[in-house]
């Protein structure tokens, strides 16, 4: 019996991997993300001028166009743009991870409670969710940053504040459909506690939808974070946040085009990676996620 089961699992995995491989774009996405994570981890070692990631000043070499010495050029105080963009990867990836950690951590249990417990709990949670969803995310995030000091951590908080309702919705929908299934009924008749059923029976069954949504949302969260940085409401200079870099470079257009171009390109490639991977995972798990 055990052997048969194991063989079946192996078969499932092999088939899933085959489906994943069939979509070459998702492999591209995965490689982009892996490379970005490596860059972020190894930033101090691969950046040509690690000191330039913060407030260093070299007035002798301001505004140098891209060259072998400075492949992405230098900025208004002579810092190496490539080094700054490399260090920026740490900020954007961290922002995505923190935002989603909070959003999932808050939104998911609420959705489970609403879906499984029903009644008053359900109506209160879902009505609050509706209120949050009635304001476009970026607008709500802006309103939140308005009352906080402007820095990277508060912008993460602001984005997470707008993001959790999406996970409440996802978990709510999944819970509603899963709670009718036999395995839940069996658990209930065996006397399992509600907490056990919600977190040990229902939750594991929505992992694939969650994973797809989280992957896609990493990209979106990074975009929103960069937009806040660009508007001057997120990370503040000299933090080498990508959105902030684009915004600072904009003042010197069109002559110093390299200042904005490369930082924006970095955002684009990272977000593209998450989108490609998310799309591949969606086919892989065969789930529908809005």
């Amino acid at each position: 019996m055990e052997q048969v089961l194991r063989r079946k699992q192996k078969g499932n995995l092999a088939r899933a991997f085959y489906r994943f491989k069939k979509n070459p774009l998702s492999l591209v996405g995965l490689s982009i993300i892996l490379v970005m994570i490596l860059i972020a981890i190894l930033a101090p070692f691969i950046a040509p001028y690690p000191g330039d990631s913060a407030g260093a000043v070299h007035f002798k070499q301001m505004f140098q166009p891209p060259s072998w010495k400075h492949p992405f050029g230098t900025d208004e105080v002579g810092r190496d743009v490539l080094s700054r963009v490399i260090f920026g990867s740490r900020i954007s990836l961290m922002l995505g991870v923190v935002v989603l950690f909070v959003a999932v951590g808050v939104g998911l249990p609420l959705g489970l409670f609403a879906g499984y417990l029903g009644g008053k709990v359900e109506s209160v949670i879902m009505r609050i969710t509706d209120i949050f969803l009635a304001i476009p995310p970026l607008v709500l995030a802006l309103a939140v940053t308005a009352v906080l000091e402007r820095n990277l951590y508060n912008s993460m908080f602001a984005i997470a504040f707008t993001w959790w309702p999406w996970y409440t919705r996802l978990a709510y929908g999944e819970t509603l459909s899963k709670k009718e299934e036999d395995f839940v009924e069996v658990s209930e008749s065996l006397g399992a506690s509600r907490t056990y059923i919600m977190f040990r029976e229902i939750l594991p069954n929505m992992t694939s939808s969650l994973l797809v949504k989280i992957t896609l949302d990493m990209g979106y969260a990074i975009l929103v974070g960069a937009a806040l940085g660009f508007l001057g409401l997120g990370a503040q200079p000299p933090t080498p946040e990508w959105g902030t870099l684009v915004s600072l470079g904009r003042i010197h257009l069109p002559k110093m085009w390299w200042l904005s171009t490369f930082a924006g390109l970095a955002i684009f490639i990272t977000v593209l990676g998450f989108n490609l991977l998310g799309d591949g995972l969606r086919d892989f798990f065969d789930v529908e996620v809005e």
């Binding site: 774009l25 990209g219 975009l223 960069a226 937009a227 660009f230 990508w242 959105g243 684009v246 915004s247 904009r250 257009l253 069109p254 085009w257 904005s260 171009t261 930082a263 924006g264 390109l265 955002i267 684009f268 977000v271 593209l272 989108n275 490609l276 799309d279």
Partner: peptide, 18 residues
Amino acid sequence: AFAGVSFPRFWIGIMFQI
């Protein structure tokens, strides 16, 4: 489509301007 959803809007706007 993939590119369209992945562009940072402010950046692509700046690229258009250039």
